[in-house]
Amino acid sequence: MTATRPGVTTIPIHGKAPRIHDSAFVAPGCVIVGDVEIGADSSIWYNCVLRADVSRIVIGQRSNIQDGSVCHCDPERPGDPEGSPLIIGDDVLVGHMAMIHGCTIEDRGFVGLGAIAMNKAVIGSDAMLAAGAMLTEGKAIGARELWGGRPARKMRDLDEMAIMGMRMGVAHYADNAKHHAAAVDEALKG
């Protein structure tokens, strides 16, 4: 786990170093700091920042964090001994330029392009935070719900077609990551 990856900056801090599964793809340009764990077959795309300097970030299996996204967490505080770690389950899609901060995204959750999820917010299983939406602190999206707007509010329940679309997206990113890993290796040889 956590071999050197070309073009990726990994920085240990406070005695904690990133732990990246050997099968995960981390694109060049990413910065990964501190207590970060990335699971099997997950992918972190170009120019993402995952900074776990004050708490932890956990990313499950086959999840993807797409280009330019920022992932952070918050430390413990008086009255909040656990702080706000960022916990991402399995088969999660996080769209380009999203900002996810100290929240929980359950298995098969989806965060749309440019969306924001704040401390202690929860995105349930098979649920979607729409593109550009902002899920404010402590709000919870139930399983199979679509929320949108700023601040985000429930728009509707997701049907089977939407759920299948999200699952196809997960499969696409897991497969595409393998192609990008090979392309990066080839580019480095040239």
Rank of each mutant, 00 (worst) to 15 (best):
M118R: 05
M97A: 15
I44S: 02
V58I: 14
S55L: 04
D35F: 03
D41I: 06
I11A: 10
L50T: 02
V92Q: 04
P85H: 09
V54R: 05
R51M: 00
I13A: 12
D90W: 04
R77T: 15
D91H: 00
S43C: 07
V49D: 01
G138Q: 12
A24H: 13
D22S: 09
D80G: 14
I105W: 04
L93D: 09
A121S: 03
R144I: 09
G149Q: 11
V92I: 03
D90R: 03
T10N: 02
Q66D: 08
G60R: 00
A117F: 12
P78V: 15
A127F: 07
E37C: 07
G132K: 09
S23H: 09
P85M: 05
A117Q: 00
A143M: 09
D80F: 15
S55P: 07
L135A: 08
S43I: 04
K16C: 13
I88K: 06
G95F: 01
D53T: 07
S125M: 15
A17C: 13
V70P: 03
G138A: 06
D80M: 15
D22T: 10
H72F: 02
Q61S: 11
S55Y: 05
S125N: 14
A133I: 09
S84F: 12
P78A: 13
D91C: 02
F110L: 07
C73H: 09
Y46V: 01
D80K: 15
E37H: 06
E137I: 13
G138D: 08
V33G: 06
W45D: 00
I44Q: 01
C73Y: 06
D90I: 04
I88Y: 12
V26Q: 06
I11P: 06
M97W: 10
F25E: 07
Q61G: 13
D53Q: 02
P81G: 00
F110K: 07
A115I: 10
E37I: 08
D80A: 15
A52H: 04
I38D: 03
D91W: 00
G142W: 15
P28M: 08
D90G: 06
R19P: 11
C48K: 04
N119F: 10
A52S: 08
G95Q: 04
M99D: 14
A121E: 00
D126V: 05
G124Q: 05
I13L: 14
E76C: 15
G142P: 12
P75C: 05
V58L: 12
S23K: 07
G39L: 03
Q66G: 04
V92M: 06
G15M: 11
K139E: 11
G29A: 01
V111W: 09
P12I: 05
G149M: 09
M99E: 14
P28S: 13
T136C: 14
T136S: 14
G138F: 10
I141V: 11
S42N: 10
G15T: 11
W147C: 00
L146K: 10
T136G: 12
A98S: 01
H21Y: 09
A98T: 02
H21W: 07
A143I: 08
H101C: 08
I100L: 01
H101G: 07
V36Q: 06
N119Y: 13
I105P: 12
N64L: 01
L86Q: 00
R108Y: 08
W147Y: 04
G79N: 11
A27D: 00
C30Q: 08
F110T: 02
R19S: 14
S43R: 02
N47M: 07
M97R: 12
A117N: 03
D67I: 02
I44H: 02
V92D: 01
C73D: 13
M97V: 15
I38K: 02
